[in-house]
Amino acid sequence: MSRERHTPSNLPEGVGIGFKAEHFDDLLAQKPDLAFIEIHAENYMAAGGPAHRRLERLRAEFALSVHGVGLSIGGAGPLDAKHLERLATLCERYQPESFSEHLAWSSHDTAFLNDLLPLPYTEATLALICEHIDVVQTRLRRQMLLENPSTYVAFAESTLEETQFLREIVSRTGCGLLLDVNNVFVSATNHGLDPRAYLADFPMEAVGEIHLGGHDEDELPDGAPLLIDAHGSPVADPVWTLYAEVAAVAGRAPTLIEWDNDVPDFAVLMAEAERARAVLQGRRASGGRHVDAA
């Protein structure tokens, strides 16, 4: 491993939004005070076309986070070399402040399944993930951030807690973490765990970005709640409460509002961003500690 060559993930502090084409005109007309915008990498892998022209215009105005949803870092097979090259081309072209991906798998053999699928947390899967993160960071010559997942099942063979697993990945690969607070709440609820215990054990010093999104509520046949990470609604109140607690202790807290489905009016999205900004201002006022991710 040659971490010293990796450019650290370095999003500016503040609040960003997930970019949706519907909001392009509003973004350019209003030039709101956003710390960054985030895109899904796979939506910008065309050879040409209007999507690239929009992104070039936005890149000139805002810091950029490239968030991958298809690399399948947790996949048992070798990483998709072609896809890694596409990511390298994208990062080369737009020079984002940060690149992130998920603790999940989404491809098997030659099939791409288009969902963030769960994996057991064992020594074997830990070694697998670390190998893949090394390959990614070496090729992109950047530190990447890894996001904690929303999960709906647990595995019998798991021997490590998710927080232990993430801590070990950080220490072995030098990657940073993207802490999705909604995912923490969703997974804790789904597995009957305490989200505060999870957060107390989370390696906060490695956090380079925070995600906030909405979830849907469902119910299991026994009446227990089952939450679904749907990104189609406002951030839920208990997630805002956890976020304020996280913001007070996280090393860095560039915060993204994610709203990918049933995309709202720009003003609604900006109101969510404003709410996050108020929380971050509270963090500064109360002297929340600041530790550089690098």
Binding site: D115, L117, P118, P120, Y152, V153, A154, F155, A156, E157, S158, N190, D218, L220, P221, D222, L226, I228
Partner: peptide, 18 residues
Amino acid sequence: AGLAPYPPEIARARFAIY
């Protein structure tokens, strides 16, 4: 196979999300 030991109808409902 390999999921945590849920009752069958719970395993089905959880896996159905994916």
